[in-house]
C-alpha cells in the first residue's frame, strides 16, 4: 500500500514537467507583447522596456526562460508579476478562497446529489423520480452564466438572502451563493449517477440475500445498497474536485470572487507567463493528490480492489 502511494506520488514528476512545459509554451506563443500591453497607449522609454524584459527574462530564448522558471520554482522563488506583486503572495491569497468555494460546492453536490439520487433510485418510475430527473435535465441544460445571473438577481438582490457579490470579504457564508451555482451542474450529474447505480444494485443478488436475512428496509438500503452504489459516484466527485479547484471562471466572474479563476483569466490576458504557470503548477499538484485520494477511497469502499 505504502509502495503504491509512493509510486503514485512519483508519477507527479513527469506530469508536472509536462504540464508546466506545455502551459509555459502556450503563454510564450501568445500573440502580442506583454510589456507593451502593460503600458497601454503610452510609449515608455526603451531603457524601461529593456529593464522589464530583462527582469522577466523575456529577452531570452524559450528554453532558457523555461529553465530559469524551473530553477526559481525549485528554490521557492516565484518572483513577482508584472505589477511587481510577489506571485507567492498572490497564490496564498487566491487559493484559500477557491478552496473554500470548491469545498462548499463539493459538499452541496455530494450531499444533495446522493440524497436525491438514492430516493429517486428507490422510487424508480414514480412521480418523485420523474420530477427529479426532469429537474436535473433542466439544470444541466441551462448554461452556468444564466443560472449565475438568475441566482444573483433573485436570491442576492431581490430576496436579499445572500450577498450578491463576494468582493474582498470572502468567507464561508458569503461564498454560499456562488457555491450553489457552481455545484448545481455537478449535482445533477451526481444525482443521475447515484440513481442509476442504486437501481442497478437494488436488483443485485446480495440485496435479495440481505432482505431474505430479515433485515429492515432502511438497513438494507444504508448498509448494503448505498455503500456499493457509492463506488462510481466517488470516482466522479474526486475528478470533479480537481475541476472545481481549477477555478470557475464564469462563476467567479459573476460573483466577483477573488479566486483562482479570476486571477488566471487576468494573467492569461496579460500574457503573464510566470503567474499562469505558477497557478497551473499548484493545480497539477491538487489534481494528482485528489486523484490519489479517490483511488484510496475507492479501495476502501470496495475490498476487491487492492493496490500494491
Amino acid at each position: 500500500m505504502i509502495r503504491y502511494i509512493i509510486r503514485r506520488l512519483l508519477q507527479v514528476i513527469p506530469v508536472f514537467l509536462g504540464t508546466t512545459l506545455l502551459v509555459y509554451y502556450m503563454v510564450f506563443a501568445l500573440p502580442g507583447d506583454p510589456i507593451a500591453a502593460l503600458f497601454g497607449d503610452r510609449q515608455p522609454p526603451q531603457s524601461v522596456i529593456d529593464a522589464l524584459r530583462n527582469q522577466y527574462n523575456l529577452d531570452q530564448p524559450f528554453w532558457v526562460q523555461y529553465g530559469l522558471f524551473l530553477k526559481n520554482l525549485f528554490t521557492f522563488n516565484l518572483g513577482v508579476d508584472f505589477t511587481q506583486q510577489p506571485i507567492a503572495a498572490t497564490l496564498a491569497r487566491i487559493f484559500p478562497v477557491t478552496a473554500m468555494l470548491a469545498i462548499e460546492a463539493l459538499i452541496i453536490q455530494a450531499v444533495f446529489g446522493v440524497l436525491f439520487g438514492v430516493f429517486a433510485g428507490l422510487r424508480k418510475g414514480k412521480l418523485f423520480d420523474s420530477t427529479v430527473l426532469v429537474a436535473s435535465l433542466v439544470v444541466i441544460a441551462v448554461p452556468t452564466f444564466v443560472l449565475g445571473f438568475v441566482f444573483q438577481l433573485v436570491f442576492g438582490v431581490q430576496l436579499g438572502w445572500a450577498k450578491p457579490t463576494v468582493g474582498a470579504s470572502a468567507n464561508w457564508g458569503n461564498l454560499i451563493l456562488p457555491a450553489v451555482v457552481l455545484g448545481l451542474v455537478s449535482f445533477a450529474y451526481v444525482l443521475r449517477l447515484t440513481r442509476t447505480s442504486v437501481i442497478e444494485n437494488m436488483n443485485a443478488d446480495y440485496v435479495r440475500t440481505a432482505t431474505a436475512k430479515g433485515l429492515s428496509r432502511p438497513r438494507v438500503v444504508l448498509a448494503h445498497i448505498l455503500r456499493n452504489s457509492m463506488i462510481p459516484v466517488v470516482t466522479y466527485l474526486g475528478a470533479n474536485l480537481g475541476g472545481l479547484m481549477g477555478g470557475a471562471i464564469v462563476t467567479e466572474g459573476i460573483f466577483n470572487v477573488p479566486g483562482v479563476g479570476n486571477k488566471l483569466y487576468q494573467a492569461v490576458q496579460r500574457g503573464e507567463g510566470p503567474t499562469v504557470v505558477a497557478i497551473v503548477s499548484v493545480l497539477v499538484l491538487v489534481f494528482v493528490v485528489a486523484n490519489l485520494l479517490v483511488d484510496l477511497l475507492y479501495a476502501w469502499l470496495d475490498p476487491r480492489i487492492r493496490y500494491e
Binding site: 443478488d205 435479495r208 431474505a212 436475512k213 456499493n228
Partner: peptide, 26 residues
Amino acid sequence: AGRIREVRGKDVAVIFQEPMTALNPV
C-alpha cells in the same frame, strides 16, 4: 411486512445459486 421480516432469516432461510453475487462483496 414487519411480521414476515421476523420469519425471514430466522424461521425460513434461503441459499442462493451464485454465492459470489449472493454475498455482499464489500
